[in-house]
Design a protein around this nucleic acid. Structure first.
Length: 483
RNA sequence: CGGGGUGUGGCGCAGUUGGCAGCGCGCGGCGUUUGGGACGCUGAGGUCGGAGGUUCGAGUCCUCUCACCCCGACCA
């Protein structure tokens, strides 16, 4: 409509050009800006505040499982990195290498960590002699570097922020338990805090982490093209890394054994997921639990005399809400209220309070929801109870809507033609039986660009025929295109 | 690394057969304004991505080069 034409013209259409919409939202909502090096971004204060809120919630959950934080170096000697064959083969194409330090060529090049198993495991080897030294449960928050050919803001960057947890255990069973536990931590975090429903499951052999015994994943469905995004992964590394990095110990019976490891990571690509799952034509829609600003207050007045009255009411409202919500008062006097409304909607703030002379006279404010656009007057005295209720209602509503998108676009398929068609139509997730052969998996990838996102834990409990070759199959998988 | 595209004030763009570098938005100042992106006046801001060439004269033509974006291959 005419009232918002000027604003809508600034964002590309969500349905028609989702990828462009995404790029524009990232920049215009001031989450991140381009930087001089291709594939790297500056995370701006608003985007970083969002990340910090996510970090705080995930960090708390990780620590509740007995894990401690630590920090390991950025550089890894190339020879050390190269010890685990599959690992180095998997990461070689995207490794950044430092060959020069100061004025000298280095005798041995240094790998800039693309992940830290190769520097953490050797340290664990020094710290472990007895089964009494196990388990080791350590996490680090850091950035890692992977030289990606095709970067996308937050989703695939040359340098990205994440946490990587690394544990060492006396038995394979314990490592398995830990890797599953951390996947569950990720599932709970992403669904509860980010309001994004996920499909937990196991990766196929060809999609698993380089060097892992098994990889577990949570897969989310993005808006727009309904592509999949791997939102977090947890690996049971078996004793591969224990053997090559000599994490050796004596067990209770005096036998020499190698430790079993796990590693698990979740990166700031979940910011990208949050944007793509909840956003709309007007911009971001941030889940209240992680939104940097939960309530924005926009004061409105005409004359100077009104200003004092409004300011006094705004101060009272701010004081009443500060204990129960993250509040920001937009006092800029070079912007009109309408301009501010649009900007805060673009930035995804869940609730907006408008306070003008008419409201002050009635001891009320006008409260507007970002998710529904609904406007309602609320008595100032009730704000401190109404606002927290609404924030949880919005959080729940976002999850419900995202759950519906995931469910509505996840369809069981029984014929290969149907699978091809759904992949070509960007129709979402296709659930199908798969015989387990890499040949069948590769054929689907080549012919449809869809990959096996995961073998969901949640299985029908029946057997079926492989979607590709018709062979016996006892497990369904999710096929989808992915970012 | 293949295919396509774009480089001109901060952003978005125009610039015709080669002839004084422009427009909108934004930005500074002053004033009026403020309930869904206000308005007037005024001002600042550019070696046209880079190098070389053709020409009396190049944003425009030629050669080379660099960067970025999109589509593929590859990937948390």
């Amino acid at each position: 409509m005419s009232e918002d034409r000027g604003f809508v013209e600034e964002l590309s259409d969500y349905e028609d050009d989702f990828d462009r919409w995404y790029v524009e939202v990232v920049r215009k909502a001031e989450l991140a800006d381009e930087s001089p090096v291709r594939g790297t971004r500056v995370i701006r204060p608003y985007g970083f505040a969002l990340w910090e809120n996510m970090q705080a919630e995930l960090d708390r959950r990780i620590k509740e499982t007995g894990v401690q934080n630590a920090y390991f170096p950025l550089f890894i000697p190339q020879s050390m990195f190269a010890r685990e064959a599959e690992h180095v083969e998997g990461f070689a194409p995207e490794v950044a290498l430092v060959t020069r330090g100061g004025n000298r060529e280095l005798e041995e090049p240094l790998v800039v960590r693309p992940t830290s198993e190769a520097i953490i495991c050797p340290m664990y080897a020094r710290w472990v002699q007895s089964y009494r030294d196990l388990p080791i449960l350590i996490n680090q928050w850091c950035s890692v570097v992977r030289w990606e050919e095709r970067p996308r803001a937050f989703l695939r960057a040359l340098e990205f922020l994440w946490q990587e947890g690394h544990t060492a255990h006396a038995s394979l069973e314990e490592a398995e338990e830990r890797s599953r536990l951390m996947l569950e931590v990720y599932r709970d975090f992403v669904e509860t805090e980010l309001a994004i429903p996920v499909v937990p499951g196991q990766k196929s052999e060809s999609e698993k982490f380089a060097g892992a015994l098994r990889t577990y994943t949570i897969e989310a469905m993005m808006g727009g093209k309904k592509w999949a995004l791997q939102a977090g992964t947890s690996h049971n590394l078996g004793d591969h890394f224990g053997k090559v990095f000599d994490i050796e110990f004596l067990d209770a019976e005096g036998q020499r054994r190698f430790a079993c490891n796990t590693s698990w990571g979740l990166s700031f690509r979940v910011i990208g997921a949050t944007i793509m799952v909840h956003g709309d034509d007007r911009g971001l829609k941030l889940p209240p639990r992680v939104a940097p600003i939960q309530v924005v207050v926009v004061p409105i007045w005409r004359r100077e005399a009104e200003r004092d009255v409004v300011e006094e009411a705004v101060a009272r409202v701010r004081d009443a809400l500060t204990p129960v919500a993250r509040v920001f008062v937009d006092r800029r006097d070079d912007k009109t209220p309408g301009w501010k409304f649009n900007e805060w909607e673009l930035k995804g703030v869940p609730l907006r309070l408008e306070i003008g002379p008419r409201d002050v006279a009635k001891e009320q404010v006008v409260l507007v929801r970002r998710d529904t656009g609904e406007k309602q007057p609320v008595a100032m005295a009730e704000l401190a109870t109404v606002v927290p209720e609404l924030l949880s209602e919005i959080q729940a509503g976002l999850f419900t809507a995202a759950r519906r998108m995931l469910d509505d676009n996840t369809v069981p398929v029984t014929t290969y033609v149907e699978l091809q068609q759904r992949a070509a139509d960007n129709a979402g997730f296709s659930r199908a039986f798969w015989c387990g052969s890499e040949a069948c998996e590769a054929q689907v990838k080549i012919e449809t660009k869809a990959t096996i996102r995961c073998i969901p834990f949640d299985q029908p409990g029946t057997t079926g025929r492989c979607i590709v070759c018709g062979g016996e199959s006892d497990a369904q998988v999710i096929f989808a295109r992915a970012y």
